[in-house]
């Protein structure tokens, strides 16, 4: 168990430190890279909890896809760091206020949380005995919570279609390659053989 404890403290320390650094470093690209490090350590914590499927999913979805797009956007922004710092004091009171509200809410939740004996027993084993991680999760979301899961999928589908509709623009005068037309082209469409009389031209 010593190794697990050491691994936990390693992941937890790096996660907390890098999460702090995300909001304190000056360069936004460094922020995103540190955010990725945080995600990665969170995945490590998931593995220690016995939720290896969730850990891999976190890496594939957040680190492998979401953060890449995030990094793209941040890399291509032309940000003036000095200008960005100027409004800092103006926004400070509102920011602190929101942080305090969130903190108080979290404290209330934490203080009012009691664990029943059943919950404690479940804590010790993340999945039912003899069932793999993936299977346990699959049983939950495709049997017990099938409708909720499907509607979540529908919401995401609608959001995706919305994003596509909002950004789809047809520009005039753009020449696009239409491969089907190129393939359908026959010799008769493009070539015409003419007999040219000698000395006359066409």
């Amino acid at each position: 168990m010593v190794v697990q404890a050491l691994a936990f403290y390693l992941f937890a320390t790096i996660a907390v430190l890098s999460a702090t650094a995300v909001v304190t470093v000056r360069n936004p690209v460094h922020s995103v890279l540190l955010l990725i490090l945080t995600f990665f350590n969170a995945a490590g914590l998931f593995v220690l909890l016995g939720a290896e499927f969730l850990a891999m999913l976190l890496v594939v979805v957040y680190v492998g896809a979401v953060a890449v797009l995030f990094l793209f956007v941040v890399m291509m922004l032309d940000i003036n760091f000095v200008e960005m710092r100027q409004g800092f004091l103006n926004y400070l009171p509102i920011g602190v206020l929101i942080a305090v509200v969130l903190f108080v809410e979290l404290a209330f939740v934490g203080a009012g949380w009691t664990l029943t004996d059943e919950a404690v027993a479940v804590l010790a084993q993340p999945t039912p005995a003899g069932v793999g991680n993936v299977e346990a999760l699959g049983r939950l979301i495709y049997t017990d919570y099938a409708y909720i899961f499907q509607s979540a999928g529908l919401v995401l589908l609608v959001a995706m279609i919305g994003a596509i509709v909002l950004t789809l623009r047809h520009r005039e005068g753009v020449r696009r390659q239409k491969i089907s037309e190129q393939v359908k082209r026959t010799r008769a469409d493009t070539l015409e053989i003419k007999k040219v009389p000698v000395g006359r031209g066409i």
């Binding site: 891999m56 594939v60 492998g64 991680n133």
Partner: peptide, 11 residues
Amino acid sequence: DLNVGILYLFA
């Protein structure tokens, strides 16, 4: 011999 080996590779 991970149970989620293929996901690990993909990740």
